[in-house]
């Protein structure tokens, strides 16, 4: 009995497992950074969509409808790759000599000096920006709708007090908007949490990649077969992990909504 416990304890705390536990930080970082950026892009998008200047309004509308119209995976993969290429192209225009370009045989980059190597931290940041861009389009719509739900009288009262347009926007309109945006933003947050499972597609050694490596049949020449194919157990752990995150987020958002809705929303009891 105690032997069993000791065995399982040492199995679950071996180096690879510790790396797996540590890789949860990538998922959590991507979710938090992606969520924050999504709100930022959502605010920018909603402001553009509300703009009185037609081209800006067009940009806002195009952003929110195009990005939402294609699968999130597609944009999630496309943005980091395209960004990396754009940077490499910019660098290439500066550093590549014609001889270096002539020597280069591969299709990309234009010359060897322009190559930009991306590791896990860089990809993680790009992935977060990508998540922010994709789900910012969803947040744009949520915030755009919330801005329109703020009672008109509140804005008129603010204007009657002699506030400038910017003051009305920042001190009254956006402050009161959050209560109406929270249910939609909670949906967007759930989508972001679920989308963090895709990090491994960008070569980030995240929880999914490690679950796959740890679960694969483990054969050591000195010990023999340590365990057979246990991948489904590791994926089951991740399955439960994501359900728990959803559960906790739901509870947290309900608490925030109750607190933010004090005295404003009668439904939010």
């Amino acid at each position: 009995m105690t032997d069993d416990i000791a065995y399982w304890f040492s199995y679950l705390t071996n180096g690879k497992h510790l790396t797996w536990y540590a890789s949860f930080q990538f998922t959590i970082f991507a979710a938090l950074a992606g969520g924050t950026l999504a709100v930022v892009f959502g605010l920018i998008g909603a402001t553009l969509k509300n703009s009185r200047f037609f081209p800006l309004r067009l940009i806002g509308t195009t952003y929110s409808s195009i990005v939402r119209g294609v699968p999130d995976v597609l944009f999630f993969l496309f943005f980091p790759l395209a960004f990396e290429q754009a940077v490499e192209w910019l660098v290439a225009t500066q550093v590549c000599s014609p001889e270096a370009i002539a020597v280069q045989t591969a299709a990309w980059p234009p010359c060897k000096e322009a190559n930009w190597f991306l590791g896990t931290p860089e990809y993680l940041i790009l992935a977060s920006v990508s998540l922010g861009l994709v789900y910012g389009a969803f947040a744009t719509n949520v915030i755009h709708g919330a801005l329109r739900s703020v009672p008109h009288g509140q804005l008129e009262a603010a204007r009657a007090y002699g506030m400038s347009a910017a003051q009305v926007l920042w001190r009254v309109h956006i402050r009161q908007m959050w209560v109406y945006a929270l249910p939609g933003l909670s949906n967007v947050w759930m989508l972001i949490v679920k989308a963090t499972s895709l990090l491994s597609l960008l070569q980030i050694a995240d929880i999914v990649l490690w679950a796959d490596r740890l679960g694969a049949p483990n054969f050591l020449p000195t010990v023999g077969l340590v365990h057979e194919d246990w991948r489904w157990r590791y994926y089951l752990v991740l399955f439960v992990f994501y359900i728990l995150v959803t559960l906790i987020s739901e509870k947290a958002f309900n608490a925030i909504m109750r607190r933010a809705g004090r005295g404003i929303l009668s439904e939010a009891q």
């Binding site: 679920k194 499972s197 679950a211 194919d229 489904w232 994926y235 399955f239 994501y242 559960l247």
Partner: peptide, 22 residues
């Protein structure tokens, strides 16, 4: 309903495929 709405489809694919493999 809660489990399948609360977890990523990507994980569900991996889980069912590895379960079928085992």
């Amino acid at each position: 309903v809660y489990a399948f709405r609360g977890s990523p489809l990507f994980i569900q694919f991996f889980m069912f495929y590895s379960l079928a493999l085992s």
